Computed example of a mutant assay.
Amino acid sequence: MSSNVVFFFPGQGSQSKGMLADLIAVEAVVADTFAQASDVLAYDMVALVTEDADGKLDQTEYTQPALLTASTALHRLWTARGGANPAQVAGHSLGEYSALVAAGALDFSDAVQLVAFRGQAMSKAVPAGVGKMAAIIGLDDDKVVALCEQVSEDDSKVWAANFNCPGQLVVAGHAAATERLMDAAKEAGAKRALPLAVSAPSHTPLMQDAADAMAEKLSGITIDTPTCPVWSNARATTLTSAADIRDALVEQLVSPVRWTEIVQQLSGQGVNQAIEMGPGKVLAGLVRRIDKNISVASVQTSDLMNKVLGA
Rank of each mutant, 00 (worst) to 15 (best):
P229V: 09
W231K: 02
A161T: 08
P226A: 02
P256E: 02
Q252L: 06
V230H: 04
M214D: 02
L169Q: 04
D209T: 11
Q150H: 15
M133L: 12
K186P: 04
A177S: 10
M133D: 03
C148D: 06
A213H: 01
V130H: 03
S232A: 12
I245V: 05
E251T: 08
S219C: 14
R180D: 06
L249E: 07
M214P: 03
E216V: 12
E187S: 13
T204D: 00
A175S: 12
E179F: 05
T240N: 03
A146D: 15
G173Y: 00
Q252H: 06
T238P: 07
A134W: 02
A190N: 08
V130R: 12
S219K: 14
V257D: 03
S232V: 14
A172W: 01
V250T: 11
M133V: 08
M182I: 10
A185R: 12
I223P: 11
A175N: 13
V250Y: 00
A210H: 00
A236R: 01
I136W: 01
W231E: 01
A210P: 02
S152K: 13
K186G: 13
A128N: 12
I223G: 07
S232P: 03
P201E: 03
L196W: 07
T204N: 04
T238E: 10
P229K: 03
K191T: 09
A134F: 05
E179R: 14
Q208M: 05
N164H: 00
A172F: 12
A210E: 00
A175L: 07
L253F: 08
L147W: 14
N162S: 03
S123I: 08
A176V: 14
A146T: 15
H174M: 03
V151D: 05
A177Y: 05
A160S: 15
L206V: 00
L169I: 15
C148P: 11
D154E: 12
V145A: 15
G220P: 13
L139E: 11
A134L: 03
F163W: 02
N164Q: 04
G189C: 08
A213T: 13
A188F: 03
E187T: 14
A185P: 14
A210C: 04
L249C: 07
T178V: 15
M182D: 01
P127W: 06
G189F: 08
S199F: 12
E149H: 14
V144P: 10
D247N: 11
S156M: 13
S202H: 00
G167H: 06
L196Y: 07
E153I: 12
P127Y: 12
H174E: 11
C148L: 10
T225Y: 02
S219W: 13
V250S: 05
T178R: 06
A210N: 01
D155V: 10
S255E: 05
S152A: 10
Q208W: 09
V171E: 00
K217I: 08
D247C: 03
S241W: 04
L249S: 09
L253S: 09
A210D: 01
D244K: 11
G131N: 06
N233P: 09
A193S: 12
I136F: 07
D155S: 06
